[in-house]
Design a protein around this nucleic acid. Structure first.
Lengths: 141, 141
DNA sequence: TACCCCCTTCGACCTACTTGAAGGCAACCC
DNA sequence: GGGTTGCCTTCAAGTAGGTCGAAGGGGGTA
């Protein structure tokens, strides 16, 4: 199967601008062109793009992803380095999820607090203005 | 208690550059100055900063955070809008965590795959070069 | 007085897009 | 056949959110 840049954008949930950016920066080495110079993507390109999206979404810089793709093309002897990269990315992603869960509980606390005020019409009347609804720490929520 | 910008940076896990950036952009309205024009932070400032960090980390643009802080200062009548903002942020954060978990399973699959190759010295010998170690979709992992 | 360290402001730089301008090719409509 | 639509191209400029360097000042200690 072959796809236009718009089809790929829709499938992957990213913009055509972003795809062109990745292509222009050498991260999609197998993409072909048709007779009008338009980019033509196949399933292999989609799989490359899928892993690019995965690594970007988990915070790997474009330059590192480029390096990883180079390693893949260099063959088996680069497996240990690739392993280390993925290990690092795994740990980073786990900490990111942990951090987001902490922040989520802070936000949950706010949502509940506001819901309470709205439902029970219960303003914090005895607290000075600049301390009303003061931000909470992650721990309190 | 009062704190220097460096103490605050350490406590919050962000750089002094970032704190100055937030202050310069009006997001820390209560920060004082000492006789040498140095910024002086108190516990109330820390709590504001804590929620700024929480909202930024969960993807809220600086401009929206600024708006939220304005709402807090305007008083009780803005509670419904603040509630909507936090609801939106809650949903966004939940989807972000879901997405990260999907990406994590892709990465886990890679890590396991590489570990297998390294431990068992088992190259994918019968697969053509540009398909070796091809990226997997989130579903396969 | 010299040195060191931390602070300040201002402006430049960086990453990863995002958008705009200018123009080409093709397909449809009348 | 000419006009319009619509997608594509390239290249350059703009944006968000920091990040950093230069230049300079204050204060403490030797």
């Amino acid at each position: 199967m072959s796809y236009t840049i718009h089809e790929v954008a829709q499938k992957m949930g990213i913009s055509t601008y972003t795809i062109r950016y990745y292509h222009d920066h050498g991260m999609l080495p197998f993409v072909k062109r048709d007779e009008n110079n338009n980019r033509v993507f196949d399933d292999n390109d989609l799989e490359w793009l899928n892993i690019i999206v995965c690594l970007r979404a988990t915070g790997m810089p474009v330059e590192r992803i480029h390096h990883y793709l180079d390693l893949v093309q260099e063959g088996e002897c680069t497996v240990p380095e690739r392993y280390e990269m993925m290990k690092t990315q795994q740990e980073r992603t786990l900490s990111e999820i942990t951090a987001l869960n902490k922040h989520l509980s802070t936000i949950n606390f706010k949502v509940d607090h506001y819901a309470d005020i709205i439902e029970n019409n219960k303003p914090d009347m005895f607290v000075p203005t600049n301390l009303r609804d003061k931000p909470t720490t992650d721990q309190t929520a």
